[in-house]
Nucleic acid binder design. Structure first.
Lengths: 190, 190
DNA sequence: TCCACAAGTCTACAGTCGTATACTTCGCTT
DNA sequence: AAGCGAAGTATACGACTGTAGACTTGTGGA
């Protein structure tokens, strides 16, 4: 937090939350301690517990903002393939990544409580964006399949860093994704 | 270890390795301690370090056997969709799962050293099975794409436990996978 | 039978973890 | 200007971590 306002509860809370998103996404729930998070927020460790109850409480809010802030499934279905391909190729910082909710999931899924919190958030997220990605009946399954394809590509590229898929350029990747999606999403009516 | 042989170095080592596969797959590298692993192998904690150098050393061997024992990409390309669909639907114990290498990855990817060990193993695994899943030139990318699709479906079904995809039965899942794979793998020559 | 060496265990250490309790410091209101 | 409540800090505790070192126990060969 900046030295502008020195005793601003809301700002301090926000700073801790931001530091939490960064840290949990980068190192996972078990990979980072509250002391570390508090330090990068510029406050003492105990403020985490004061504002969020516990480390777990902070994580729950982190999951919430991480899932809702980003647009993984949202957007125009027509340009979905291009958008996803661009997001996969784009080289940004790990936490500014458009797909960082996946990263948060992967890094924290080992912890049972964290996994439970994440599952609830993802369910709500898929539910909320069904109509955007597959605006027809029985669209839930199709949205889930699209999400699965995206998640799989992301897994190999960003997490495993597979050299095979990393050699693929954006145009090729987009074409592959488009072909995959076309088998799922009918071009017109239904 | 059983009480048949009481001072068998090879058997003890194997018992620890088996316990390591089970524990790391279930709880991840950071989610389980050497004491716990040793206990479920029926030995004292220090034997882990004696036989594998360190916890990290044990994990490296666990990754090795987990990746090579299972057949994720191996098998007949013609029946790949059916096999994967069956594996996804099949209800087995978490560690007896045919796709447990993915589980090992997901649970341990947060730890930088563990992730590095896993990456090397996966690279070798994809490389070794390229000819089986996509026996043509530039097959590496196609094998990786198939792996990505599998990984994505697995991620949503087994890890997140998405209610959407969990409602899908094996036949529907197989049909979806087949359609996806057919856009990648030409039915004949090339 | 005995003993050397491998197999296995016990104890302890230095570190980190989450967080509860007690404390200090600042800012706003009156 | 005073003081009260909120904002923030310091300290410490108990539990847990990986593993180094010294120890004991068992077994195969002489």
């Amino acid at each position: 937090m900046s030295s502008a306002h020195r005793r601003d509860a809301a700002a301090t809370r926000a700073a801790i939350l931001r530091a939490g998103v960064e840290a949990f996404t980068r190192y996972g729930f078990d990979g980072v301690g509250v002391r570390e998070i508090a330090q990068s927020a510029g406050v003492s460790a105990m403020l985490v517990n004061r504002y969020f109850g516990s480390k777990e409480g902070l994580f729950a809010e982190v999951a919430e903002v991480s899932m809702t802030d980003r647009t993984v499934l949202g957007g125009d279905p027509a340009t979905l393939a291009r958008d996803i391909a661009a997001a996969l190729v784009r080289r940004t910082s790990p936490t500014a990544d458009d797909l960082s909710p996946f990263l948060l999931l992967l890094r924290s899924a080992a912890n049972p409580r964290a996994a439970e919190i994440l599952r609830e958030n993802i369910e709500r997220h898929v539910e909320a964006h069904v109509h955007e990605v597959a605006p027809d009946t029985r669209g839930t399954d199709r949205a889930a399949v699209v999400l699965a394809v995206i998640a799989g590509f992301w897994l190999l590229r960003k997490v495993i860093g597979s050299s095979a898929l990393n050699g693929t350029d954006e145009k090729t990747l987009e074409a592959t994704l488009r072909r995959l999606f076309e088998t799922l999403i009918p071009p017109a009516d239904g």
